[in-house]
């Protein structure tokens, strides 16, 4: 009997861990209106999670677009179908690579900085100080960062995909000499507004929620030591990346 319960222990702990994160999510979501009511703090956080990532995202998107165009061009030319290059690259970007790669880069750039910032606030007792000043740290620290993360993600994903399209244009038209008319019209024919563009953005929004939530949770609940902050930062990237890839599979299978 004892051994049976010992077997259940990890399941129980996993459930409890999931429950704590769910509670954190619900609390943060409930505080979103209060974050909107204080635009100054929210704008400041939008800067720290969004603006600082723009260069990384734009450069990343450009290179992914260049590579995709090169690879697809080689593959398509074997079928004599290079006229579909524009559509194919854009489909790949909007449906899959834009949201997913942006989220992974976001987890590495903005996610870690959120986790380490909150972890440091925990370790230097700034969160406790706020708490005893009768200021709710969830409202004052977590909510504006959470909202900023959710909003920044789709915007960054859009920048990523747009830069990717630019990259594929450079390869397809400037380098391989495809006809611009065929290139652009293949996009408009192949890519559907609703099922490709809108669904991609919904994915991105959900990744934004997951990434911000995980980073903030890990930082907020970091052990209040220097070691704890480091661990929280690492965990935020690891868990975020896994969550993004798993969520991507789930969302893709539901959406398409």
């Amino acid at each position: 009997m004892k051994r049976f319960f010992a077997l259940l222990q990890p399941i129980w702990e996993f459930g409890a861990a999931l429950g704590r994160r769910l509670h954190f999510l619900v609390t943060s979501l409930a505080l979103v209106p209060s974050a909107l009511a204080r635009p100054r703090q929210f704008i400041e956080q939008l800067f720290y999670v969004g603006s600082v990532s723009v260069i990384l995202i734009a450069v990343g998107g450009l290179f992914v677009g260049l590579v995709l165009a090169l690879q697809f061009y080689t593959a398509l030319s074997r079928f004599g179908a290079t006229s579909s290059l524009g559509g194919l690259v854009t489909l790949a970007l909007l449906r899959e690579l834009g949201p997913v790669l942006t989220a992974l880069l976001f987890a590495g750039r903005a996610g870690t900085s959120l986790a380490s910032e909150l972890g440091l606030m925990r370790a230097t007792r700034q969160i406790d100080a706020m708490e005893v000043m009768a200021v709710d740290p969830m409202r004052r620290i977590v909510a504006p960062r959470f909202l900023a993360g959710i909003l920044a993600m789709p915007l960054l994903a859009a920048i990523f995909s747009a830069m990717g399209v630019l990259g594929s244009y450079l390869i397809g038209i400037k380098m391989m000499g495809l006809d611009p008319g065929v290139f652009w019209s293949s996009m408009r024919h192949e890519v559907r507004f609703h099922s490709d563009f809108v669904n991609g953005m919904i994915k991105s929004l959900i990744f934004g929620v997951a990434c911000s939530l995980i980073s903030l949770y890990e930082g907020y609940h970091a052990r209040p030591t220097a070691e704890g902050v480091g661990q929280a930062t690492t965990r935020s990237v690891v868990i975020s990346s896994m969550a993004i890839l798993a969520l991507d599979f789930l969302l893709t299978s539901f959406m398409y």
Binding site: M121, T124, R125, Q126, D128, A129, M133, A134
Partner: peptide
């Protein structure tokens, strides 16, 4: 209540002035 923490626990992203002003602005 007022609490003075062991190492002060000042908000590192705010200036001295804003640190002291923090409870006033919040409450």
């Amino acid at each position: 209540m007022g609490v003075l923490f062991q190492d002060g626990a000042l908000f590192t992203d705010l200036s001295v002035f804003e640190n002291v002003a923090f409870p006033v602005r919040e409450h």
